[in-house]
C-alpha cells in the first residue's frame, strides 16, 4: 500500500503518456487530454499544501518560542491577511466595500491586489535587485584570469558586455570592411552568442536531455524510488 501502489501509479501514468506520444488513438488520446488536466488540478492543491505547511512550521516556532520566533508572527499575520482577503474577495463593489465572489482575482478593486501591489511586488522586486550589487562585488573580488580557460571566459564576457555600448563601437570602429562584419565588437558579440555560445549551450542541453530521459525511465520503471521517502 505504502510503496507498491505509488510505484504502480507512477508506472501507469508515465507509460500511458509515453504511449500516447506515439499512438494518438483511443484510449490514449483521451488519457493524453485528461491526465494534464488532472495534473493541473493536483498542482493547485500543492499550493494549498504549501500554504498549510508554512502555517504549521511557523505556528510550531511560535508555540515553542524557537530562535527568532517573533518574526514567525509577522509571517503568519501576513499569510492570514492575504489569504482571507483573497479567498473571500473583499473589495470595492457597486454598493461599497464588501465581498464580490464573481470578480476576477486580478481586479484592482480587490483588497487582495492592494496587498499584492503594496507588499509582494516591492519585496520580490527588491530581493532580486540585490543581486546587481553582489554581481558587481563578485566581478571585483572573485573573477580572476588565473588559467587560460578563465581568461577565455573573461574575454568572452568582456566582448558581450562591451559589445552593445558606444565604447564597443569606438574600440573597433576603425576596422575596415569586410573584416568589420565579424571583428567589429558589436558584430563579434552577436557572433559569439550565435556560434560558440550556441555550441556550448547545445552540448549542455544534450547532456541534460540524456540525463532527464534516463532518470524519467528509471522513475517510470520503479527503479528510482527516492521520491517515495523512507519506510
Amino acid at each position: 500500500m505504502k510503496r507498491g501502489i505509488p510505484i504502480a501509479i507512477t508506472f501507469l501514468v508515465g507509460i500511458s503518456l509515453v504511449i500516447a506520444f506515439f499512438v494518438p488513438h483511443a484510449p490514449f488520446d483521451s488519457l493524453d487530454r485528461h491526465i494534464p488536466e488532472y495534473f493541473n488540478i493536483i498542482a493547485a492543491f500543492a499550493f494549498v499544501l504549501g500554504g498549510g505547511n508554512l502555517l504549521r512550521v511557523h505556528l510550531t516556532r511560535i508555540t515553542r518560542r524557537d530562535h527568532e520566533w517573533a518574526y514567525s508572527i509577522v509571517t503568519v499575520v501576513g499569510f492570514l491577511l492575504m489569504m482571507i482577503a483573497g479567498l473571500i474577495k473583499i473589495g470595492q463593489t457597486e454598493t461599497g466595500t464588501g465581498i464580490n465572489l464573481k470578480a476576477d482575482l486580478a481586479d484592482p478593486a480587490l483588497f487582495f491586489n492592494w496587498l499584492y501591489d503594496g507588499i509582494f511586488v516591492p519585496c520580490q522586486a527588491t530581493m532580486f535587485s540585490l543581486l546587481a550589487f553582489f554581481v558587481a562585488s563578485a566581478s571585483y573580488r572573485a573573477f580572476r584570469a588565473k588559467t587560460p580557460e578563465a581568461t577565455i571566459l573573461l574575454v568572452a564576457a568582456f566582448v558581450v558586455l562591451v559589445g552593445r555600448t558606444p565604447v564597443g563601437q569606438w574600440l573597433t570602429g576603425w576596422v575596415p570592411p569586410p573584416f568589420d562584419q565579424y571583428l567589429h565588437i558589436p558584430n563579434l558579440s552577436a557572433w559569439i552568442m550565435s556560434i560558440p555560445n550556441l555550441a556550448g549551450q547545445r552540448t549542455i542541453q544534450i547532456g541534460i536531455a540524456l540525463g532527464i530521459i534516463s532518470n524519467s525511465l528509471r522513475l517510470i520503471l520503479g527503479i528510482e524510488r527516492s521520491h517515495l521517502g523512507g519506510d
Partner: peptide, 16 residues
C-alpha cells in the same frame, strides 16, 4: 545599463 556594463568591466579589470 550601458554605464553599468562599463563599470562592471572596469571592476573585473581592476580586480585582476
Amino acid at each position: 545599463q550601458t554605464v553599468a556594463h562599463l563599470v562592471i568591466v572596469g571592476f573585473v579589470v581592476l580586480g585582476n
